[in-house]
């Protein structure tokens, strides 16, 4: 298929731009919209109450949430007092460290283990970018030397299968699916097919669902159970796809999906827009409190097939603060 037909080739993707640069570019737009981001906010200013207030505004605006923002500020205030931080630059460094402490535990590389096939189940709310992320994840897995098979587990939404098939064609990987069928059956078939063909990884798409739709949450539990029937231990990874545009509802999403299907990781999509995905900090805090850290495996920074990168806390924080 010609790339022009897919319309992605006309997107100005700067091949040379590093991942950091691209993430920064994405986040820079936000800062522009905010009229100066955290970096410029902290510039050469004296550390005083107004500065903390501005910081609060910036953090809240980044979707960090009230609780995480207050906690971050409390830590910063304490440090400022203890270490006699008086200028903005030093406070900025402190902020960066504090954020890094919060986000660093989220870093984990996706490891394709010995299990054959290794099954990755992808879930999320409607429109969070599951199918697109799967397309990009496929490319990444192939780059790691894995063969991939896709399971079109979204048997509900119109043309969801066709969308996944298009991504399959683009990456040259087989797609197992049936229109209007049972998502569990599709995943079961896909795992069987992967086993028969000796394929390394099965990535199972699922239909978008809202945590409030209890019957659909039951359905996804079943999909997971059925996967385990096809292959004990499967799925090996259960990934929730979060839209960076989402606000505090992301916390509810994480909680609901985790309770239903036991998440092993997150993907944060659409970071190339003006949203900063600060809700990740809120999630990190909430999870750290419960002692069950939920790693952020990948972030998505564009619609291109290469726009999915493993999460790096340092880069993420730099993009946010600098």
């Amino acid at each position: 298929m010609a790339p022009a037909v897919l319309g992605l080739a006309d997107k100005p993707l700067n091949e040379k731009s590093s991942w950091t640069a691209r993430l920064k570019a994405g986040l820079a737009r936000t800062r522009g919209a905010l009229g100066g981001g955290l970096g410029s906010l902290l510039g050469r200013r004296k550390v005083d109450e107004t500065l903390f207030e501005d910081l609060e505004t910036a953090l809240l605006t980044a979707d960090c949430g009230v609780e995480a923002t207050e906690a971050l500020l409390a830590t910063l205030r304490a440090r400022a007092r203890k270490e006699h931080i008086e200028d903005g630059a030093a406070l900025k460094a402190a902020l960066r460290e504090t954020l890094l402490e919060t986000l660093a535990p989220l870093e984990r590389r996706l490891e394709v283990l010995a299990a054959r096939p290794f099954v990755i189940m992808v879930a999320g709310v409607n429109g969070s970018g599951k199918t697109t992320s799967i397309g990009k994840l496929t490319k990444w897995l192939q780059a790691q030397g894995c063969s991939v098979l896709l399971a079109a587990g979204d048997t509900f939404r119109a043309a969801a299968r066709e969308q996944l098939v298009a991504w399959g064609e683009r990456n040259g990987v087989p797609v197992v699916g049936q229109a209007g069928g049972d998502p569990g059956a599709v995943v079961f078939d896909a795992i069987q097919a992967a086993r028969a063909r000796g394929i390394d990884v099965v990535v199972a798409d699922t239909a978008g669902r809202l945590p409030t739709q209890l019957h659909l949450m039951e359905e996804i539990k079943k999909v997971k159970r059925v996967a385990a029937k096809a292959l004990p231990d499967a799925p090996h990874e259960v990934v929730l796809v979060l839209d960076a545009n989402t606000g505090q509802n992301a916390l509810a999403q994480v909680k609901a999906f985790d309770e239903a299907i036991g998440l092993t990781g997150l993907m944060l999509t659409k970071l190339d827009g003006t949203a900063k995905g600060g809700v990740v900090a809120a999630i990190a805090r909430a999870r750290a409190a419960s002692g069950a850290v939920l790693p952020l495996l990948f972030v998505g920074v564009g619609e291109g097939v290469d726009d999915l990168r493993p999460f790096s806390a340092r880069e993420f924080v730099e993009g946010l603060v600098d």
Binding site: T246, T274, A275, V279
Partner: peptide, 15 residues
């Protein structure tokens, strides 16, 4: 617009 959108909704809506 997605009802679950966060703080960035203003920027997007404005644009």
């Amino acid at each position: 617009v997605d009802a679950m959108q966060g703080q960035d909704a203003v920027n997007v809506a404005k644009a």
